[in-house]
Design a protein around this nucleic acid. Structure first.
Lengths: 82, 82
DNA sequence: GCCTTTTATGCGGAATTCCGTATATTGACA
DNA sequence: TGTCAATATACGGAATTCCGCATAAAAGGC
């Protein structure tokens, strides 16, 4: 329900999973946002793209992006306990 | 604790806030990741950048990126009910 | 006000991304 | 195996980002 990415490649893979969940092909997605299928391909597999392209894809996949501090594992941080 | 972005500009603003929380100048941040201060400036204010630059900044600011489906508030969506 | 730091902007040039188009490769499946 | 959909890759060219460097403009302190 919540995918974490720390590299462009990881983000690309995550986007691919979300796209497939929606049953969309790269071509279908690309035409929705007015970009080329090849652009989606390199984004998903190499992680190379501009923020412009990224957010276009996000909105087409009905995704939102959130930032948070890196947590070191599952256990709560001290400041969350006391 | 968790910043949401739907546009490159929003993401830029969020990054600026996180950077300032760490007490870093654009110059300090840029030198940590081997990029120009001008690159940080345009990322933060215009939101234009590559994913490569974005993730370099994220790791320098100790941030992680997560994706999730857009939820329109608390209530479930129609297609989740029927 | 003045000074210092920080951020924004400008220049030419290199590198990358995106474009349209097209084709090659891969994968799924009857 | 053969066929079709899906994805990866290639080409030249346009647009954008990044570079180093430099300076202009803004913001903060004293």
């Amino acid at each position: 329900m919540d995918t974490l990415s720390r590299t462009p490649k990881q983000l690309g893979s995550a986007l691919r999973r979300y796209r497939k969940q929606l049953g969309l092909s790269q071509t279908a997605l690309s035409s929705r946002i007015g970009k080329r299928q090849a652009t989606i391909s390199t984004l998903e597999s190499a992680g190379s793209a501009t923020l412009d392209t990224l957010f276009a894809v996000l909105s087409a996949l009905d995704l939102e992006l959130s930032l948070r501090r890196r947590s070191k594992g599952v256990r709560a941080r001290l400041e969350d306990i006391f």
